[in-house]
Design a protein around this nucleic acid. Structure first.
Length: 716
RNA sequence: GGCGCGAUAGCUCAGCCGGUUAGAGCGUAUGAUUCAUAAUCAUAAGGUCGGGAGUUCAAGUCUCCCUCGCGCUACCA
């Protein structure tokens, strides 16, 4: 194990609140890991913060008639507050709008620039001529080519979730002015990822970089390695590190051509981890560089699977390009959590919002945490259901854990007036670990020690579900210990043995009060209080506990006066669950209403700029007949058509494969744009364009003369 | 279309470099028990390991093909 740890959790984007998918994906595993390390007395810093830049925030601000600043302030506050309420124990929750972050990322950019890590490249981007501005992907709306949603953004369709690029949109429109954007060249700085491919490949697959072993790939998750290699095998391309944006970190002004350019999220967000660490160090009189530049530090990024290549390839490349920084030792990305059989969706409001949960289930934060851990999508996507939430709470937290604690405390008060009995360690009794096993006091403490170590090993390997299961085993064994020995029956006939059993049961409870701390921090505190023990300190308390147990020493001493038992967890009745299920159903029907309301209001695209007859006269449109059609290999949308124009036969590629099977279009008479410059697509030259009518849902229909017509005739 | 990951008991998931009758938790059934929030404990039933072919003395575990889910990514005049 390394000397110190720096743990990061993905920066949540400050344009919406936190839902359970975020929690189960990144924040909870990170929190458990960090709390565990602290319990083991490790030097660990846990950083996170709001990601507050980018076009989506400006778009949202524009929509709501407010400023980006107000948007990020609002959500930063909600996010920070939610994390606190649900017990995610960051050392610092920072934000990327802070000056220290702007300075840090500019320094980073400057360094890479000076080292010649960038190439400048000019590309065509959509530009809005009426407002004189380049358009970010999110500033362009149009019809989604997949689901025909007329309000899809240039980077993503929020209705069907497809990832898009602005050129995918069927009728692109600028969100700023409503005008049709034009393509215009713009210069940006690209990181030479291609030059980093070789060492990244070695580092990912062998753990070696710069001749030193940095990590063991066997400890990385399959899907993480798989996705990285998928990218590496396809060849890394230079990646733009800047954008034409209005809301973000400026490219350092002394760099020529920097006006109007902002750092792209690839740089901005991960450097947020660094600036957060800097701010934390300032606040606590520490040296941030120890955590980012010392080989003794273990850097771990907790993220969701959508962020894998970014944290495993791009950010490491950036760190390496800079030269002074360490690389992550693991990136334990989780998969996705579904809700009641469907993907979580912020825009469809298909989610359980953590801040709402905290308000509606006050004091039951740990119940959500417990469920999230049980359903953590560690290896594959998983599913949260309210019914399952209720069942795990009632069956495991109430019936098993809380009940065990309660019966031990109640019996202790009943038998000994709440004073921990002393023990004769020579006596034997029935062990709770398996039926018919004989127990002995010190042996049982050793088993507890072993279980805690097992829990720790699982956490260190990012197997949080398994770790939690091990903890619950202690509670089950405790219940069995009572069951087998039946102290309520034998307290008078075999008082001495009952004292040993009850004392041991209290040791179980005390061990649990520490063991559950990383998972259920609020309950751990309550339990300590019930035991009348000081709260667990996040500073080596587990280490101390392990040391005592291995020596055969009890962790609650004889004669210690216990506190009063309260219920650690309460049963959740059907009505409460039903209310949540109804709430989701209401969301569902609201969505459906919204859908059906949209149907009648067809959005007509605005008529294009007026042209002169001469412009039209340049266009040569002819009648033609499709002779043959076949699917273009490796393409989803393209059909390769042979079209008879009378005077000649043309090969034309047309993006209609999703609308028409090839056999259905053969023989159809069509209208062809005949003097369009030929263009190579998928290795074939397309010599024209078939004209099709398109409706508001993106469906296509051939246009042809109403009567049979000769081929090659003009259309005017 | 390409690539990656996944598909194992009713449910949620473990199964490392192939090796005895495939595991856990929850649920279910039966029995025991009553200190405890009708909680607990024991025992049992339940799987042709997504489908098909192959390699091997031996395959959930390796290879190939197919189906489904999820993610990344390409083409879209």
């Amino acid at each position: 194990m390394k000397k110190r740890y720096l743990v990061t959790a993905a920066l949540p984007y400050a344009n919406g609140p936190l839902h359970i998918g975020h929690l189960a994906g990144a924040y909870l595993p990170a929190d458990i890991y960090v709390r565990y390390l602290r319990l083991k007395g490790k030097d660990v810093v846990f950083v996170c913060g709001s990601d507050e830049h980018g076009a989506a925030i400006t778009v949202k601000a524009r929509k709501e008639g407010t400023t980006p600043r107000e948007i990020v302030d609002k959500y930063h506050t909600i996010l920070k507050d939610t994390f606190e309420k649900i017990g995610i124990a960051f050392d610092i929750y920072h934000r990327t709008s802070e000056p220290i972050h702007h300075a840090t990322s500019q320094d980073f950019f400057r360094k890479l620039y000076e080292k010649g890590e960038f190439i400048e490249e000019t590309t065509d981007q959509y530009y809005d001529e009426t407002v004189g501005q380049f358009l970010a992907d999110r500033y362009i709306v149009g019809t989604c080519p997949v689901c025909a949603n007329p309000d899809a953004y240039g980077d993503q369709c929020e209705k069907c979730g497809s990832t898009l690029s602005p050129t995918d949109l069927i009728h692109p429109k600028s969100m700023l002015s409503g005008s049709v954007p034009v393509k215009r060249p713009t210069k940006h700085w690209f990181l030479r990822l291609d030059q980093h491919e070789k060492w990244l490949r070695e580092w990912i697959n062998t753990g070696k970089a710069g001749g030193k072993t940095r990590h063991d790939p066997a400890n990385w998750k399959n899907h993480v390695l798989g996705q990285c290699n998928s990218w590496l095998d396809q060849g890394l391309q230079p990646r733009a590190m800047t954008r034409d944006l209005e809301w973000g970190v400026d490219v350092p002004p002394e760099i020529p051509g920097s006006e109007g350019k902002k750092l792209y999220v690839w740089l901005d967000a991960p450097i947020g981890y660094i600036s957060a660490t800097k701010q934390w160090a300032l606040d606590h009189g520490k040296n941030w560089e120890l955590y980012w530049k010392s080989e003794d530090t273990s850097l771990v990024h907790f993220i969701g699977k959508d962020n894998i290549v970014f944290h495993c390839l791009i950010f490491p490349a950036i760190l390496k390009a800079h030269g002074d920084f360490i690389l992550p030792v693991n990136v334990p990305a989780n998969q996705f959590l579904n809700l009641e059989g469907r993907k979580l969706s912020t825009s469809k409001n298909w989610a359980v919002w953590v801040h709402e949960y905290c308000a509606e289930f006050e004091g039951q934060e740990d119940v959500l945490r417990y469920n999230m851990i049980k359903k953590m999508p560690e290896q594959s996507d998983s599913e949260f259901t309210w019914k399952g939430f209720q069942e795990t709470n009632n069956n495991e937290l109430v019936n098993n854990l809380a009940n065990f604690v309660n019966r031990v405390l109640v019996l202790s008060h009943k038998f000994y007036g709440g004073i921990v009995p002393s023990v004769n360690t020579e006596l034997v009794f029935k062990s709770g670990w398996e039926p018919d096993k004989t127990g002995q006091y010190n042996e049982e403490l050793a088993i507890l020690h072993h279980k805690l170590e097992e829990m720790g090993t699982e956490i260190e390997h990012f197997n949080f579900r398994e770790a939690l299961r091990v903890v619950m085993e202690i509670s089950s064994a405790g219940n069995a210990l009572l069951q087998f020995n039946e102290p309520w029956k034998t307290v008078n006939t075999n008082a001495e043995t009952v004292q040993v059993v009850m004392n041991l049961a209290l040791q179980y409870v005390a061990v649990l009060s520490v063991a559950i701390r990383p998972f259920l921090p609020f309950s751990a505190d309550r339990l300590r209080n019930m035991l009348n023990l000081s709260p667990v300190r996040d500073n080596g308390d587990l280490l101390d506990l392990l040391n005592e147990l291995v020596e055969g020493n009890p962790v609650v001493q004889p004669n210690h006066a216990l506190g009063v038992s309260q219920h650690l967890f309460s049963r959740i009745p059907d009505e409460v669950i039903q209310r949540q299920i109804d709430k989701l159903a209401a969301t569902d029907s609201a969505n459906q209403n919204a859908d059906s309301n949209e149907q009648p209001s067809i959005q007509y695209t605005p008529v294009k700029e007026t042209i002169q007859y001469d412009d039209f006269a340049k266009i040569d449109i002819r009648t033609g007949t499709i002779l043959s059609a076949e699917k273009v290999e490796k393409s989803k949308k393209l059909l390769k058509l042979e079209v008879d124009l009378g005077f000649e036969t043309r090969t034309i590629l047309s993006g209609i494969a999703e609308h028409y099977p090839p056999e259905e279009v053969v023989g159809k008479q069509v209208i062809v744009l005949a003097n369009l410059a030929p263009r190579m697509m998928m290795g074939t030259e397309s010599q024209g364009m078939i004209l099709l009518a398109e409706n508001s849902e993106g469906k296509l229909s051939f246009v042809s003369p109403t009567e049979g017509w000769q081929n090659g005739m003009g259309v005017n």
